[in-house]
Design a binder for these strands. Structure first.
Lengths: 199, 199, 199, 199
DNA sequence: CATGAATGAGTCTTCATTCAT
DNA sequence: CATGAATGAAGACTCATTCAT
């Protein structure tokens, strides 16, 4: 009787849900939680405003869902750090490049902004608290120390240097301004922060 | 005749005005124009919400006043760049330090955020347009080139290197997160972006 | 000890009170109760805003006092109607002129506006209710009938004609617009409403 | 696809818009711009306060829209004056009757009040300035003069007599108080202002 | 399922009123 | 007594959310 069978409906549902999540991700990433109006999400997703609420109980749930899923992904990615290959320099560079890459840009931006701004739903805040950032740093320290020993990286407290370095990378991701003239600083330029500049 | 003379009243008015401006500066700097509620400004200034409107016609005027005054100050500061002393490295370092300094932090953050976000009152946007950022960069190029010749700075397009460098400094100012463990990256660390790392 | 003795203080008090009442009368008359801000009254009276409240407990009390006093005066004036002299035409004309006269303009306007607008304090409304407008009309009817018999006024229900006539006079008082070109209609013109136009 | 087609939605929108405009017209006409609260308009229209703002950007825009539309209509009506028929007396009477008629009452009252009170939005004031009232008067003068020659109207400066007459009509429209006993003065009564009273 | 009209709680702003001086 | 700075409750407007269609 119904023109669409159950399976087809599920496909539509999933697709719509994804569509909304993508739109929301981008907007929350750039504008934060309170700065993102549901009307903007609807416009970005190309749907009506009301429809969002058939897929997510509230703006809050939509946001929290995104936090949840992104953190799970991040967890997995963190695991994959061990499979980085090449010299220490190359490994860090690859990682950096990955972070600055268009494809994952909004995911990083979203999480970073959520962390920075206190202004997120309680539930989302709790999820974020469960996932420490330091884990990543810890994994990178051995690589960095190796690089120091190889003379690729400048000497100094590895933890501090990496913390500062990634702090800067994070800031760049968050700001995302398209520099009109020169574009984003390239990765080799950024890596100077870690090297002796001899390379 | 009057219980408080005119002079005393003016002092009170000026003080209140300043108090409101300081509170607003801090909040606008961190949260942007729409993200800052007048109730927050009142709370930060320790006054009632209504009082703001005896000193400023509207939230919009308060914001625009800040933009105006800060840009005038910036203009003056730009003039002072010529009086920087020391080696090129030291000059850039001093400048950087000044930008990251607590005392001027909110001023920079305010202007940077205003520029980045389109979401400011029309009037404020027009004031910002009148003041180019590139002026500062142009003033620094000769210094930088001198530093390159002296071997203090790495070679490369001076304009591009400086643009990238200050872009990063700007991002740091904008983000302002207190890194729990190590604090903000120190200036010598940041300056590695410009040097060969030999120093 | 005090530079002003009690008597002098009372003089000041009375004068100030009168000053405030005059200012308020004018403004309430023109703009009605809610349309008149206390700041306007203060400005019109040339005093500070706060001072009003040393002489009147509230805007409401100020308004109600005015209603009260004006109604008492009106009562007296109504008595005086019997002393009008001249022909019926002249008597009505004199009365009309008196109503349109600058000196009593605001008093009439005030009361008329108060009556028309429901938007006045409860207490004021109750005072107004106690004083019927019809009393005046009733007093005029004999005069008007006399005029009809004398051929000065056109025939017809005297009460209705007078009611309409004064309704129009009231409207003119209420509107008070300065007609640029010709000024307010003059009384003889208005009186045509009551006469045969033969005069 | 959509549950209501575009046409139906437009009907709803137009109807609501009209509903709001009617409610606003009535209230603005009676109470003026600042005296009319949006909550009153909502109540009068039988809708929620917020809904007004989906149809009009602001109270100001709602008011200005009304001014605009009413002035356009007035323009057309002014054109139609030439098609008045009957004797001069009948023509003026018809016109007067039209102005006092229930159906157009609020439109006249609205415009008259807007003109009288300076307290309207800038944009509305500018529209009003573009439309002179004198045009109507000028059109009526020939008719009136004809009536004078025919002995229907009393002699005297036609422009002045008409100005006074319509000034009074305007006042009546503005005041609109329902006279309990006798209702509004009827038109023949008012016309006595212009005639010799012989008729 | 999808739409967008409708609602109401919260923000910006005004204004009567209070109060320190 | 007189001032004007300060307050808070109410009006204008926005936006997440609901719901008839």
């Amino acid at each position: 009787m119904s023109p669409l069978n159950k399976h087809q409906l599920n496909l539509i549902r999933d697709e719509r849900r994804e569509q909304i999540k993508q739109a929301a991700l981008k907007l929350f990433a750039r504008r934060g939680y309170p700065g993102t109006k549901t009307s903007m999400i609807a416009a970005e997703a190309g749907i009506s405003e009301g429809l969002i609420f058939r897929y997510f109980k509230s703006k809050e749930e939509l946001f929290t869902t995104l936090v949840q899923e992104l953190m799970e992904e991040a967890e997995k990615e963190t695991e994959n750090l061990q499979y980085l290959s090449g010299s220490p320099y190359e490994q860090i560079k690859t990682l950096t490049q990955g972070m600055l890459d268009e494809s994952s840009k909004y995911a990083f931006m979203f999480i970073l902004r959520a962390r920075k701004t206190g202004e997120i739903p309680e539930a989302a805040a709790r999820i974020l608290e469960q996932h420490s950032v330091d884990v990543v740093l810890d994994r990178l320290i051995p690589i960095f120390v190796q690089g120091q020993q190889a003379g690729e990286f400048s000497s100094g407290d590895p933890r501090k240097l990496l913390a500062w370095y990634f702090y800067i990378i994070n800031c760049l991701i968050l700001e995302e301004v398209e520099m009109e003239e020169y574009g984003l600083p390239d990765v080799d330029f950024l890596m100077r922060l870690l090297t002796n500049g001899k390379s």
